[in-house]
Amino acid sequence: MAKVLLVDDAAFMRMRCAKLLTENGYAVDEAENGQEAVEKYQKIKPDLVLMDITMPVMDGLTAVAEIKKIDPEAKIVMCSALGQQNTVMSAIKAGAKDFIVKPYQPEKILSTIKRFVG
């Protein structure tokens, strides 16, 4: 069972997303900011990270860079709101594999995850 790390400071978002993922057979772990995400990544080595951008303590962009330092092969998908194109572009350049745009469409999240972790 593939492990997905959900990083988002909004509990509501994590909740909806986690529900969708578990229902579709993924093991879900959660982090509420970039810092926590980096720590958890080291601990649980998830197969995929869904990373929000705007978060307290450590933002998503920094977290991508940190995680890439730990694991250059890390698969990270950015979760962005519209209008964050530049940040997403930076994240992709920093090593994120893809992005999805909020509001989430369940099929899109699933197809994206499937592409990376099967």
Binding site: S80, L82, Q85, M89, I92, K97, D98
Partner: peptide
């Protein structure tokens, strides 16, 4: 596509 430029970029990377 949403964020067309990023989509292009990601596709190119892929």
């Amino acid at each position: 596509p949403e964020m067309a430029a990023v989509r292009l970029f990601v596709t190119l990377m892929a």
